[in-house]
């Protein structure tokens, strides 16, 4: 498989620092698909943590930096729904009073894609030739689902993994309770929510829980590990890379 397309990797800060293997999986997928890549080495964070916590000035500074780094890229691909939602939707809110930056934000946002969305909707590929033996359940992360309207794309990719079986958990579209600083500031509520999620994951009978956002998965994995569950947590990129 070869393609003339080049993607620019937009690496979520959590992937960069905590889960580099997810980034490497994304690289492996694009290598497999014959897509050439570049990855701006000065990128840091899209600004979402500051935006969600209300620090709009800091978020705006991060956004400007992001736009400067990425605005000349052909396609910007990120393994995180919430970061893409930030760039595509919230940047416009940040710059609503600044026409010049708003224009640049819109232009950049239009070329920014979440990984599963890019593979299915742009590359028109639904089978990336991955193998994985096991029962997989999929968690719909909130901003991916409700912000970007992505729910079928990752499911199609998972269904086409050789040896894998996609099992739907109950309420896959219900928030896992992460919510950024919410999980730290309101741990009791957040835990009650992730407990419901973990309950549904375990009840599904799956061996692996996956999703398109490492932030939610980090929350789920953190709880699964604490209660000593054997269910594995893997980002969708990790499943598709094998």
């Amino acid at each position: 498989m070869t393609s003339t397309k080049t993607v620019t990797l937009f690496v979520q800060c959590l992937v960069d620092s905590l889960y580099p293997q997810v980034g490497e999986a994304m690289v492996a997928i694009f290598n497999k698909l014959g897509i050439s890549m570049n990855c701006p080495s000065d990128q840091t964070c899209c600004g979402q943590p500051a935006f969600n916590a209300g620090y709009r000035k800091a978020a705006r500074a991060a956004a400007k930096r992001f736009i400067k780094i990425f605005e000349n890229s052909e396609s910007i691909v990120c393994p995180s729904g919430s970061c893409v939602n930030m760039v595509k939707n919230h940047y416009q809110e940040l710059f609503e009073d600044d026409v010049k930056w708003l224009e640049r934000a819109v232009q950049t946002g239009q070329r920014t894609y979440e990984l599963s969305q890019y593979i299915t909707d742009i590359l028109k590929i639904e089978d990336v030739g991955a193998c994985c033996n096991g029962k997989i359940t999929y968690h719909d992360s909130c901003h991916l689902l409700r912000g970007l309207g992505i729910s079928e794309q990752p499911r199609r990719l998972i269904r086409n993994i050789k040896g894998a079986e996609l099992i739907e958990m109950l309420e896959s579209d219900r928030c896992c309770g992460f919510g950024g600083t919410f999980s730290v500031k309101y741990p009791v509520i957040s835990t009650a929510m992730v407990d419901d999620k973990v309950h549904n994951i375990i009840a599904s009978g799956a061996d692996i829980v996956t999703g398109c956002d490492i932030s939610c998965l980090m929350n789920i994995q953190g709880r699964l590990n604490r209660i000593g569950s054997s269910v594995k947590t893997l980002h969708i990129a990790q499943l598709l890379a094998d």
Partner: peptide
């Protein structure tokens, strides 16, 4: 607040960007 009920993935030795 996080580790009250959850564990956390530690920071990787080398970031993805560096790798």
């Amino acid at each position: 607040g996080w580790t009250q009920s959850r564990d956390l993935q530690p920071l990787a030795e080398q970031s993805f960007i560096s790798r």
